[in-house]
Design a binder for these strands. Structure first.
Lengths: 252, 252
DNA sequence: GCAAAAGTGTTTCATGTACACCCATGT
DNA sequence: ACATGGGTGTACATGAAACACTTTTGC
């Protein structure tokens, strides 16, 4: 473990993935000691978001990338600063003690900067995270988390929802090649709504930033679906014009 | 000055106001020593955003409110966390030295959390900020700022622009009673566009969250304008429905 | 009565939404 | 031949955008 010189600041990462049917979040186990009913100290477990105190001379973004690379082995990841959690009472005495002992620190207060990131949940990814003993949990089924990480997760979720409606981030969660139906399923799962398939296709295909690849699904027991990919360059181009937004006349 | 126990974290506030014709930002003077051409140490001045290291046991939001109240005398202020600036090289040696001596600290690195806030720029406000030697500068004319505060300002500006198009924050910058024309001028000034007055009125008046007050302008040499106020309760209500957003069928 | 800004309506066009059937493939 | 999911088109409603003249006041 490299020297941790800033023990008062940490970074936590909410990592989302999509397995084809539901939204997943990457969690790591935390082992801690606690007195049981009879007063004996026993080991217990719960889950937390991947995170770490920041190193000296490390930008927070660098720190987040470091945490992500360690656990996913991947460098190029969609990453966005979410929010700072700074309530002096955000950690209980027990949680503080756990963090201090885990990282060899001695601090009374830790401010955390939450990042959220989107990854492609393919085989290589799941194999690597499994090696690190990290687990992909169905977001819907996460009941509680260690520290104040549930709160962080909830904020990440609402940000994800908002962004999904306004920015082309869905593609970060899908393989490079995907079908329109996969994309629709993703929207439905994350937003929790039903979408009309005809309108969805129309909207996406006329948007101009999906590029049809020549090939189709193979070996499926139905009409094979066309593969598409997201054309970022075209999106950027289209986006220039799209600055319209409401009651403003841009004919200047 | 109360004890500053966390010298590695500061809060800086971008405070916007609107004077009826252009967007203003609140700046404070910084005095510092520097060697001039002949090598003598002389005093120089530049401008920075209001800010401060955080106190122990102080939430960042509390810290921001403290800074704002000190300089504006007002408590209830629109405030939003903007971004964390954490580049280890964000401050030069000279700037670090200045901050350390200014606040009696001795630190090698300061991370700052930027907040941005919107205030009503009335007489009481300008009188109080003047007492504190703070100045309202035209945003357009701010060429450079101390530290990395220009960068922070730019980010606040782009966030303000985006929010202005999506949320009813314009009212935070206007007096409680305002005319439609004032509102339009504000949009035009901040976004830097021209807006068709008929469409603007239609849009705003049918939106349902402007409440016409009975009274009109007085003593103006033209047809007096109707006063309105923002009806937050109605906005919240309307907003429930407005979750429509694009290609999704919400008939579920 | 004139200068100055407030206020008002209609037409056109683009986009969103609702809705039901045929198509290509594997078994 | 049948089960499975992929793919397609049209009519209607809603909202955005363009555009010019009348009204009310102070002087």
């Amino acid at each position: 473990m490299p020297p941790v010189t800033n023990s008062s600041i940490s970074v936590d990462c909410v990592v989302f993935g999509f397995d084809g049917s539901s939204l997943k979040v990457l969690l790591v186990k935390r082992r801690y000691r606690e007195a049981d009913a009879s007063g004996d100290e026993v080991y217990k477990e719960d889950y937390k978001l991947p995170g770490s105190p920041i190193f000296d001379n490390e930008d927070l973004t660098t720190s987040a990338y470091r945490i992500l690379e360690e656990i996913t082995s991947i460098r190029n990841i969609y990453l966005k600063q979410l929010h700072v959690f700074s309530d002096p009472a955000r950690l209980s005495e027990r949680d503080l003690a756990w963090l201090n002992s885990r990282y060899g620190m001695d601090t009374r207060r830790i401010i955390t900067i939450a990042y959220y990131s989107l990854v492609k949940l393919n085989r290589r990814m799941t194999e690597h995270t499994a090696l690190r003993r990290a687990e992909w949990h169905d977001v819907q089924s996460v009941k509680k988390l260690a520290l104040d990480h549930k709160e962080i997760l909830m904020m990440a979720l609402s940000t994800l929802n908002r962004q999904l409606l306004n920015e082309p981030i869905a593609f970060e969660l899908l393989p490079r090649k995907f079908t329109i139906r996969q994309l629709q399923t993703l929207y439905e799962a994350i937003l929790g709504v039903e979408i009309d398939n005809r309108n969805f296709r129309k909207k996406l295909l006329t948007s101009g930033y999906l590029r049809a690849l020549g090939d189709k699904e193979e070996g499926v027991a139905h009409k094979p679906a066309q593969y598409y990919m997201f054309d970022k360059a075209r999106y950027e181009k289209e986006n220039r014009k799209r600055t319209k937004l409401n009651f403003i006349n841009w004919h200047e």
